[in-house]
Design a protein around this nucleic acid. Sequence first.
RNA 1: GGUGGGUUGGCCGAGAGGCGAGGCAACGGACUGCAAAUCCGUUUACACGGGUUCAAAUCCCGUACCCACCUCCA
Length: 470
Amino acid sequence: MAFQLYDTASRQIQPLVPVQPGRVSIYHCGLTVQGPPHIGHIRKEVVFDVLRRWLERSGFTVTIVANVTDIDDKILVKGVEQGRPWFAVAYENERALHAAYEVLGCIPPTYEPRATGVVPEMIEMMQTLIERGHAYAAEDGSGDVYFDVRSWPSYGELSNQRIDDMQAAEDAPPEGKRDARDFALWKGHKAGDPESASWPTPWGRGRPGWHLECSAMASKFLGEEFDIHGGGLDLRFPHHENELAQSRAAGQQFARLWMHNAMLNLAGSKMSKSVGNTLLVSEVVKRVRPIDLRYYLAASHYRSIVEFSEESLAEAATAFQRIEGFVRRAAELSGPGDLGEVSAAFAEAMDDDLSVPAALATLQATIGEGNKLLGDGDSEALRGVLASVRSMLDVLGLDPLSPTWDRGGDDAAYAQVIDSLVGGLLEQRQEARATKDFATADRVRDQLTAAGIEIEDTPQGARWSVKGDN
RNA sequence: GGUGGGUUGGCCGAGAGGCGAGGCAACGGACUGCAAAUCCGUUUACACGGGUUCAAAUCCCGUACCCACCUCCA
């Protein structure tokens, strides 16, 4: 089966037919950097990271562009609140986003342009839209530039809405709009806004509206037609609808497929800064291992809502640790080896709209086989199974042996010291067991357990691990 | 009011006309000095009411509830 994906625009599963054979171009909406990322934001990064890894594994050369929208109303407000330049706020949060990518093992995008870096391209695009009769400078002299939705008959095609059915935005001031649904391509400079947040245009000084930056970046970095446009489902309207309208109205083909990931809910509603029910990535990884968090985010289907709970997160960690336990024990017996081939069932599941849950079911079956070989001590056959398991995990960004998860610093040195100390105790325990002095043997084990170290007896002798860490 | 998605066993989570995905938990067995880990086995399902069909969790109609979007949002 060739790779196919649920396309939001046609509301159907569609085959991926790349513009250029062998290459896949993907644009997905990054963040408006008004705050540090929460785990809902990073769910989206994990989803697109898995997509990228799978396409690359399938032999495609993938170019992936994600924007950083580094100017908007809220960033300006925060700058004022915090008594520092708006760009300091944006930059700090951009760095927090990068830290979150890294801690969860997401490969950075190929290019990650900033909205403020494509202002000339946005101006050109507005000129094109005005020439073609799809945009206009506000008649009130505000310097705003609007897209004229009534001039574009297919407006609403992405979210399957008709303009006349749309609820008129309550908070939309009439301003200089011809229609209440017209959206701002560009916002004229207002008294009180910092000078640094404005750029010269043929219509006066001003700053980008939301939406236009993505159209400008997508065509600049991927061309006028590209393969997949993605983002969170909450961006489908108005953001993606507006991007599609302005790019098509400017004469571009734009995205072939639209891929939207479902939300991560907390306490019944979408995790969102405005609701205040957020869990920051930087906080969660203090109490949950990043690889366990990644498994939690990656394990459910990308189009299913994930209802966050501590219980389901803990359960995901347990499930992953079973997988990881196999990998570590197998690697101890037969060596880590190299990545192998994924199973045919795994490939079929991933090709079918990125069906990670089905892919994980086949992975579990492979691990079951591997555990039997481990019990038999068949290190030769085990090597092949381990290579396959690691390769499947690698597609999900979850190979426990990947250097991604090495926690640098002094860890390696400490591990040697601990191994030597624990090794001595295990020898004592083994001597006691040999003379059937089980009271002493158990006392040693209890002592280690109390220190957070788990002991497993295997045919190759005792192995130890830090609790919850395999 | 409009648009899209959902409701599956104690829990998480797939599937989309016939064959009980998978995981976690529980219980039984094997292994073990005892454990742990692992393996084998067992148990509990498709929101509700109609309909179509030889056959429905799956298709159709209706009802209830939930989520998202229509306003800043991954």
